[in-house]
């Protein structure tokens, strides 16, 4: 059994103009793994959208080739590609007067006859797509009555109705709030595992991408693309390199970027509940206070999350919140 569903052979992509081609990404030999969720990460302007557009056949490659199921992308007609690959885009669709069902049924475009009439099989597939994104009860709702999160799920259902092995998503979580973002990522994971869909999504959401993707494609500022498991790419420093900026530091423990204070004004130590200690450290760091083994002050955490307060070793006073404690520390 083959493990890749789409691969590229020395692919270069970018923009062609009258003055000649400007290549953004060079000489890529990539493999999109079957039934896996792959996230494409990279800072703005590194060529994420260009790569997705080229792989989807919307934009011509400068050189090299894209192969889908071992067929050259260039040899396939628009309709043939549409049966293998579907898209979900960042741009919000502005159409008010369509029901959710009608919008999803547009995904059947490559299969239906000239008038777009749906047969019983089409209906089945559309309902299945709706059920897969858990939007079945919204079938007759109008698109403009949906929230951003629901709308994005409908667009994914439309891609599912197109019944393709591959789905590309261009920043699908861009307009969503945090709970919706997490839900969407889990939905995508579910689709890859349940229905063997191969999903490639570009995203700026480093946190979810590192936690939930099977595979990562990371483009760094020199337009070099690295692929691998998220953890491998973190450990090898590829993720840090892709986003590095002078004032930002990559936290190898949490897999996120942070800005370190210019200088620490104090050094303290902490004793007590582990969970509270994590958040206390966070607050201290933000306020330019470093946490070390033997600091000038020792903060004692009393109690647990349900009921806690802070004390300073060798000093009088109790502090019921982190905010009050910080106020005290800054005035010492």
């Amino acid at each position: 059994m083959k493990d890749s569903i789409l691969h590229t052979d020395r692919l270069s992509c970018g923009y062609k103009s009258k003055k000649g081609a400007s290549t953004i990404l060079n000489d890529l030999s990539l493999k999109l793994e079957k039934g896996k969720l792959t996230s494409l990460l990279g800072a703005n302007g590194t060529g994420k959208s260009t790569l997705i557009r080229t792989l989807a056949g919307v934009q011509p490659a400068i050189s090299g080739s894209v192969l889908m199921d071992d067929q050259l992308l260039g040899d396939l007609s628009g309709r043939e590609i549409a049966k293998k690959l579907s898209l979900v885009l960042t741009e919000r669709v502005h159409v008010g007067n369509l029901t959710v069902f009608a919008l999803i049924s547009l995904g059947r475009f490559p299969y239906t006859s000239w008038l777009g009439k749906l047969n019983s099989k089409d209906h089945e597939i559309i309902e299945h797509a709706l059920a897969s994104v858990k939007m079945l009860e919204f079938a007759n709702t109008h698109i403009d009555e949906l929230s951003d999160g629901e709308r994005q799920k409908v667009m994914i259902a439309r891609a599912l109705a197109q019944d393709t092995d591959i789905i590309f998503l261009d920043e699908p979580t861009a307009h969503l709030d945090l709970p919706n973002r997490v839900e969407l990522m889990h939905l995508l994971r579910e689709l890859t595992h349940k229905f063997e869909k191969s999903i490639l999504m570009s995203t700026h959401d480093l946190d979810s991408a590192l936690k939930l993707s099977d595979e990562l494609w990371v483009i760094d500022r020199d337009h070099q693309l690295s692929e691998g498991a998220p953890e491998d790419l973190i450990l090898s420093g590829k993720v840090e390199k892709a986003f590095e900026q002078d004032e930002l530091n990559f936290d190898y423990q949490f897999g996120s970027f942070e800005k370190l204070p210019a200088a620490y004004t104090k050094e303290v130590s902490i004793e007590g509940d582990q969970l509270i200690a994590i958040w206390l450290k966070n607050a201290l760091k933000r306020n330019g206070i470093k946490t070390i083994e033997n600091g000038s002050e020792t903060i004692l955490i009393k109690g647990d999350r349900a009921n806690y307060h802070f004390e300073l070793k060798g000093r009088d006073g109790e502090y019921s919140t982190i905010k009050r404690l910080l106020l005290k520390l800054n005035n010492l």
Partner: peptide, 23 residues
């Protein structure tokens, strides 16, 4: 009337229409 299906696809914008195989 023969273009109904094409026009419906265009409702989602040209990029989506193209991704569904419309020329």
């Amino acid at each position: 009337f023969f273009l109904s299906k094409t026009l419906n696809a265009l409702l989602l914008g040209e990029s989506y229409a193209q991704s569904m195989g419309l020329n």
